[in-house]
């Protein structure tokens, strides 16, 4: 069930260059069911900026009714969001979309989690849930540069973690696919969120593996009503198109035409 709620800021802190971690509390958390779902945030009550911003759910605490997001503050809306203090409220619409299917990995199996930049956050809740059911994970996280790296410690505490930076200032230099080529990890299923070229490269690198990819698109409504976020499909589905916001953002590999 989707709700709209004015949720209270519990914590907000900068955790890397331009990267903020924000925790909100409210009833809406109780309806968060799946890692990889997102929320649509209105950051002001004025018309500037007008539209909501889609941000992934990075971790969920049902007991405390809290959830955390990690986001890059570089545009008009996210900058305003980064200035919200303890006790202030944020207008949240969510939880939205279909996330990563945790049930697709069996206990004892290994899952490869590949994230790029602001695609890394939803993998954190996913990894926690996979571990809770006894799935091993390998995390490969790509960033622009050492300054932008976040959650290395959190992921490392869960399992094997590799950092890749485009400029080589931390971890392996290059793209996540460069590291994967070298390491050739063995795994049963992969989950990924990040820029489309990265998702596309992964699909090509592992043609025989089961995989789930999370996509991004500019949105209007965020709930399936406006047809802003539609993507083309392949012959693998009988649907002629899919909406990233309500059918996704996560789809099985091979369904979205890349």
């Amino acid at each position: 069930m989707i709700h709209q709620e004015r949720m209270k800021v519990v914590r907000q802190q900068q955790i890397a260059e331009d990267i903020f971690e924000l925790t909100l509390t409210g009833q809406l958390v109780l309806d968060m069911k799946q890692p990889g779902q997102f929320v649509h945030l209105r950051v002001t009550d004025t018309y500037e900026p007008l539209l909501r911003r889609p941000i992934s759910i990075a971790s969920i605490d049902h007991e405390l009714k809290e959830f955390t997001m990690i986001y890059r503050a570089d545009g008009r809306g996210t900058k305003i969001l980064s200035e919200k203090h303890l006790g202030e409220v944020v207008d949240v619409l969510g939880p939205l979309g279909h996330g990563f299917p945790v049930e697709e990995a069996e206990p004892g199996q290994t899952a490869l989690l590949v994230g790029g930049g602001i695609g890394v956050p939803p993998l954190y809740q996913l990894s926690k849930e996979l571990h809770a059911k006894g799935v091993r994970t390998i995390h490969v996280l790509g960033f622009q540069s050492a300054n932008n790296v976040f959650y290395e410690k959190q992921f490392s505490e869960l399992d094997e973690t590799y950092i890749v930076t485009a400029d080589g200032s931390q971890g392996t230099k290059g793209f996540v696919t460069d590291l994967l080529k070298g390491k050739a990890p063995t795994f049963d299923v992969f989950y990924s969120c990040g820029p489309t070229p990265m998702l596309s490269a992964l699909e090509q690198a592992y043609p025989d593996k089961k995989g789930f990819l999370s996509f991004e698109e500019r949105m209007g409504c965020g709930i399936g009503a406006c047809f802003a976020c539609v993507c083309n499909t392949t012959a693998a589905t009988d649907k002629e198109y899919l909406k990233i916001c309500s059918d996704g953002p996560v789809f099985p590999r091979g369904v979205v035409k890349l």
Partner: peptide, 9 residues
């Protein structure tokens, strides 16, 4: 896509 872009108000 992109099919939408935000503008002032």
């Amino acid at each position: 896509t992109p099919r939408v872009a935000e503008t002032a108000a």
